[in-house]
Amino acid sequence: MKTQATSTLPRAARQALVKLGEDIAIARKKRRISTVSMAERAFVSRGTLYKVEKGDPSVSMGIYATVLFILGLIEGLGNVADRSADTLGLDIDEDRLPKKVQPRRKSTRKRG
Rank of each mutant, 00 (worst) to 15 (best):
A25M: 07
S58W: 01
G21V: 02
Q4Y: 11
T3L: 02
D23I: 04
G72C: 05
K106L: 14
R41M: 15
R11G: 03
L20R: 13
G21T: 09
D95S: 13
I92V: 15
D91T: 04
Q102L: 11
V52S: 00
R104V: 14
G62Q: 11
A65E: 04
L88F: 15
I63R: 14
D95T: 14
E40H: 00
Q15A: 14
T48W: 00
R109N: 13
S45N: 08
Y64L: 07
K110L: 14
I92D: 09
Y64C: 08
M1W: 05
R41L: 14
D56C: 08
R31Q: 09
K51H: 07
V80W: 01
R105M: 11
S7C: 01
I24W: 08
S7T: 06
L97C: 15
G112P: 13
V67A: 10
P57M: 10
N79R: 08
S107E: 10
V52D: 04
V101D: 01
R104Y: 09
A27S: 10
R14G: 04
L90S: 08
P57G: 03
D91P: 00
K54E: 00
A39C: 02
V59G: 02
V101Q: 06
F43T: 12
F69L: 14
G76W: 07
V18T: 12
E94M: 11
G21S: 10
G47P: 13
I33L: 14
G55M: 11
L9K: 01
K19F: 12
D56Y: 06
L97R: 14
K2G: 03
G112A: 07
F69D: 08
L97Y: 03
S45P: 15
D91E: 15
A81F: 03
G78K: 11
R28K: 03
G62F: 07
S84D: 12
G55A: 10
I92K: 12
R109S: 09
L20Q: 11
L88H: 11
A85C: 07
R104M: 15
S107M: 04
R14M: 04
I70T: 10
S45F: 00
N79I: 04
P98C: 06
R28F: 01
I26E: 13
R111N: 04
E94Q: 11
V59M: 01
R83W: 04
K19W: 07
R111K: 10
K106A: 15
L73R: 11
T87I: 08
V59Q: 00
D23E: 15
K2I: 10
A81C: 13
G76M: 12
F43V: 13
Q4I: 12
M61K: 03
G78P: 01
G72R: 13
P57Q: 04
L71K: 12
K106G: 08
E40A: 09
S58N: 12
L20G: 08
Q4M: 05
A81H: 11
R28S: 07
P10L: 01
V36S: 07
L73A: 13
